[in-house]
Nucleic acid binder design. Structure first.
Length: 437
DNA sequence: AGCTGGGACCTAGCAGTAAT
DNA sequence: ATTACTGCTAGGTCCCAGCT
C-alpha cells in the first residue's frame, strides 16, 4: 500500500486517464510515455479520506482507483484462477472487450485454429470474471487500454500484485499445520518443508489418495482377525504398527517412499488423478462413489476461513466479519467453485515438501484446480448445491452482508481424471435411475 | 539474472473505551 | 449520543538470501 501512497504524494501533475478528455500536451522526450503513466498512476493513487472521526466504512468505497485495480489483481488468483497468467487475461480480455473488430480484406482472412480460439476464450472468460468485481475498475482499465505503453505497464503491475497476493497466502498458510490435524510429532515453524509430504507419517496419510492410504495400512492376517482394532481406520504409522503390515502394504509403502509409484506400477500414487485423502470428511470415503464426503474436510474449511475471513477465525469460524479480511477487501461474500479450487491447491501444497508451483513432481496443481472447478459445473446437481452451501455456511456463516454475482464460466479441461470420471459416472447413474423411476 | 520464500516493517481498519 | 483516542489484528510491501 505504500507504493501507491508514495506515488500520490510525490507527484502533483494530474493527467487522469478519463474518457472524453483531450490528450495532454506533448511532453519532452525521451520519457514522455512514462511520465504520462506515472502521473496517471499518481492521480489514481490520490484518495480523499474523511478527516473526522473514523466511521465504519466499506473498504471498496474508500479505495482509490489504483487501489481498487490492485485489489482486483489480488482477487484474480484467489477467485478466478491461481495459475493463469493475469497478463494474458488482460491482453485477450481487453482486446475482446474494447478493440473494434478489424474487417478482414477479401481473400486475405486469417483463420485462427479452434484450439487457439478456445484458449483465448478461457483468458477472456477469466478477464470478465475479474472485472465483474467492479464496473468502475473496468472503466479505468479501459482508459489504460487506449495507450499501448500504459497498458503494458499496468499489465506488469497486475502481474506483480497478483503474484504478491498468492505469495502472501502461501506464506500465511505455510505453518498452519494445525488446520489438517494436530501434528505428532509437531513440526517446528522454523524448519523447511522437507520433512512434510510422504516423509512425515501423518502428513503422508493426508496427502495420498484414500485407495493408497488403505493399501499401505493393510495388516497381515493374524490370529486376532476379526477384532475391531484390526479394521480400524488407518492413521499415522509407527514402527510397531509397520511391523504388523501385510507384505503388500510394506511393498506399497516402500514404493511410495522411494518413487511415489504403487507396486503394480500402473497408477502413479501422487498425481492429480486422485484427490488427497485429506480432502474427505473423516470416515466417508467410498471407492464406489468418490463424491461422498469429498471436499467436506474441516481442514479445507479452515483454509477457506483463513483466506477469506481471517486467519484468527480459521479454526472456529466467524459469526460476523468483524475485522478487515480478503472477503471485505474484494467484496466477495459468496463461495464460488474457483475459490474452492484455490483452497484445495493451498491445502495440498501446505502438506507437500514442494513450494508453490504449477507442478510438484508428478502432481499438477493446475489440473487439480481445473478438476475441482469442473466438478462444480453442474449448478443444479444436489452434490454441488450441498457442498457449496456447506462452504458458504462454514466460511461466512451468518455474515453474508453483501451479494456478489455468481460468476459463471466455462474453463473446460479435457483430461478425464480418475476421481472425476467415477463421480460423473455415478451422477449419470443417479440421473438415469431418477428419470426411470 | 531471474525467481521465490522468509521475515521485518508499514499501514489500514475494527473494536473498545474515555471524554465531551 | 457523538467524538476522539488507543490497541490490536491482518494485509501488503520491501528487501535480502538461496536456488535454478
Amino acid at each position: 500500500m505504500s507504493t501507491p501512497a508514495a506515488g500520490a504524494s510525490a507527484s502533483t501533475s494530474s493527467t487522469p486517464p478519463t474518457s472524453g478528455q483531450a490528450p495532454p500536451p506533448p511532453p519532452p522526450p525521451p520519457s514522455a510515455a512514462k511520465r504520462n503513466y506515472d502521473s496517471a498512476i499518481a492521480t489514481l493513487g490520490e484518495i480523499r479520506r474523511p478527516k473526522s472521526k473514523r466511521a465504519k466504512r466499506n473498504p471498496l468505497e474508500t479505495k482509490s482507483s489504483l487501489e481498487k485495480l490492485m485489489s482486483m489483481a489480488r482477487y484474480f488468483p484467489r477467485a478466478v484462477h491461481p495459475f493463469m497468467d493475469i497478463g494474458l487475461a488482460l491482453e485477450y480480455g481487453g482486446k475482446a472487450r474494447w478493440s473494434a473488430p478489424t474487417p478482414a480484406a477479401p481473400g486475405n482472412s486469417v483463420v485462427i485454429p479452434a484450439s487457439q480460439q478456445k484458449e483465448e476464450q478461457t483468458y477472456i472468460d477469466a478477464f470478465e470474471r475479474m472485472i465483474a468485481v467492479s464496473s468502475e475498475c473496468a472503466d479505468v482499465l479501459r482508459e489504460f487500454y487506449k495507450d499501448e505503453d500504459q497498458w503494458t505497464r499496468i499489465i506488469s503491475k497486475f502481474r506483480e500484485t497478483a503474484n504478491s497476493a498468492r505469495h502472501n497466502d502461501t506464506t500465511g498458510l505455510k505453518h498452519k499445520l494445525k488446520y489438517p490435524t494436530p501434528i505428532v510429532p509437531a513440526i517446528p515453524e522454523a524448519t523447511s518443508k522437507s520433512d512434510r509430504g510422504v516423509n512425515h507419517a501423518m502428513l503422508r496419510d493426508a496427502i495420498i489418495p484414500w485407495s493408497l492410504r488403505l493399501k499401505i495400512h493393510e495388516r497381515a492376517p493374524t490370529s486376532h482377525d476379526g477384532d475391531a482394532s484390526s479394521s480400524s481406520s488407518p492413521t499415522a504409522g509407527t514402527s510397531e504398527e509397520e511391523a504388523l503390515l501385510s507384505d503388500e502394504a510394506k511393498r506399497a509403502l516402500s514404493a511410495l517412499l522411494n518413487g511415489c509409484k504403487e507396486t503394480d506400477g500402473v497408477t502413479p500414487a501422487l498425481t492429480s488423478g486422485r484427490f488427497p485423502s485429506c480432502f474427505y470428511a473423516d470416515g466417508t470415503y467410498d471407492s464406489n462413489d468418490p463424491a461422498i464426503g469429498l471436499f467436506r474436510a474441516p481442514f479445507l474449511l479452515r483454509i477457506g476461513r483463513h483466506l477469506w475471513t481471517t486467519p484468527s477465525s480459521a479454526m472456529d469460524g466467524a459469526t460476523s466479519l468483524k475485522t478487515i479480511s480478503n472477503a471485505r477487501a474484494h467484496g466477495q461474500f459468496i463461495v464460488t467453485r474457483e475459490m474452492i479450487g484455490y483452497i484445495c491447491c493451498h491445502g495440498r501444497n501446505m502438506l507437500s515438501t514442494a513450494d508453490w508451483a504449477v507442478k510438484d513432481g508428478a502432481y499438477n496443481y493446475q489440473k487439480l484446480f481445473n478438476k475441482v472447478v469442473k466438478l462444480f459445473k453442474k449448478d443444479n446437481d444436489p452434490w454441488v448445491v450441498d457442498t457449496l452451501k456447506w462452504y458458504q455456511d462454514g466460511i461466512f456463516g451468518q455474515c453474508r452482508n453483501a451479494s456478489t454475482e455468481d460468476r459463471d464460466s466455462d474453463n473446460d479441461d479435457d483430461d478425464e481424471d480418475d476421481d472425476v470420471a467415477i463421480i460423473n459416472a455415478r451422477r449419470a447413474e443417479r440421473e438415469s435411475s431418477a428419470s426411470s423411476g
